[in-house]
């Protein structure tokens, strides 16, 4: 009853308010990022392109992981296996690329991306076929991918050709333009932008928003959900490759960090966990925010573990404020 009433009230609301409601959160995240960036560049004695590089290096895998998680959440699911899929791609690339030529390494990377998308599609297919909640299936897949990663590489090791590492740690044109950032933007432009406003993108949102209505509208619900997980797998693969390129090694446990933080970045970036709401621009910024908070803390001389505590607390507080904001909106 109260929702119907809220609907009536919303109809008479003027457009600026509606715009603020739809995009306010994303804008807010970018403002937060800007504030943090401005503060950050005042801390080191001689802040320069090197710092920009290292921020991009730190944030790149998380940004991809956040994209992977966001796509799936928008489609109404959640992927707890993102982290361990990242580990798997990470160890696979680090184990086999180490003695490859640059060209072969790239081709192998491409192959891994296809494999990673296929892995995502496999998870999605399992969810659709079994009708088991996403959270259970992806939890199970978390075990499976992590186990496989451990089977492939028991302890951190491996590596990659120098020229491949340059993709993650180098720069384009000027030292101020980290190559990682450019690759991130490229991936966003190639894999997401063409979809967003086209029918596949609308289908993705519709399935997350109201599956029944989507089906009645003629959307292939199963197909779309599998597609979302495949796209998520692709971004997770990019995150895994980015992790090898930025860290230079493969680590079967490296992905753990991304399970929570990908979800946190997605939520912080304005993707609602109920599905159907948000985009990828916000979560990318949120990934940088999350990384930057930790960077700033460590620059300020805070112990690594304290930084983790503070970072976690901040994420919780931010999400709590978000929850409170939604409650306030629901009440009025």
């Amino acid at each position: 009853m109260s929702t119907a009433a809220a609907g009536v009230a919303a109809r008479v609301r003027p457009n600026p308010a509606r715009l603020a409601r739809r995009h306010g959160w994303t804008v807010g995240v970018y403002v937060l990022l800007l504030v943090l960036l401005l503060y950050w560049q005042t801390i080191p004695a001689n802040w320069g392109s090197f710092d920009v590089q290292s921020l991009a290096i730190d944030a790149l895998p998380l940004a991809f992981a956040a994209m992977a998680q966001s796509v799936v959440i928008i489609s109404g699911g959640i992927d707890l296996s993102v982290g361990s899929l990242i580990s798997l791609i990470n160890v696979l690339s680090a184990k086999y690329m180490i003695d490859m030529s640059f060209r072969n390494a790239l081709l192998f990377g491409l192959l891994l991306l296809v494999g990673s998308a296929a892995a995502g599609a496999f998870t999605g297919t399992l969810i659709v076929l079994s009708r088991v909640p996403d959270i259970v299936v992806t939890l199970a897949m978390l075990f499976v991918w992590a186990g496989l990663a451990l089977e492939i590489l028991q302890i951190p090791g491996g590596g990659a050709p120098q020229s491949y590492l340059q993709l993650g740690t180098g720069h384009w044109w000027s030292p101020w333009i980290p190559s990682g950032l450019m690759i991130l933007l490229l991936a966003f432009a190639i894999f997401w932008l063409p979809l967003r406003w086209a029918r596949p993108g609308l289908a993705l949102y519709s399935v997350g928003s109201n599956r029944n209505a989507a089906y009645l509208s003629g959307v292939g619900v199963a197909r779309t959900r599998i597609f979302a997980y495949a796209l998520g797998g692709l971004f997770a693969g990019l995150a895994g490759l980015a992790l090898s390129a930025t860290s230079g090694i493969g680590d079967p446990n490296a992905g753990q960090y991304y399970t929570l933080n990908s979800v946190a970045a997605a939520v912080l970036g304005g993707v609602a966990l109920v599905g159907g709401v948000g985009g990828l621009i916000g979560p990318i910024a949120a990934a940088f925010v999350v990384t930057l908070v930790k960077t700033i803390l460590i620059l300020k001389g805070v112990d690594q573990n304290w930084a983790q505590v503070i970072q976690g607390t901040l994420i919780i507080v931010v999400v709590m404020i978000g929850g409170l904001a939604i409650r306030q909106r629901a009440r009025t």
């Binding site: 029918r199 609308l202 997350g208 928003s209 109201n210 209505a213 989507a214 003629g218 959307v219 709401v277």
Partner: peptide
Amino acid sequence: LVPDLTVAQNIRL
């Protein structure tokens, strides 16, 4: 109709 899409998007869908 899908609640999170606009009316126009719903029709295009």
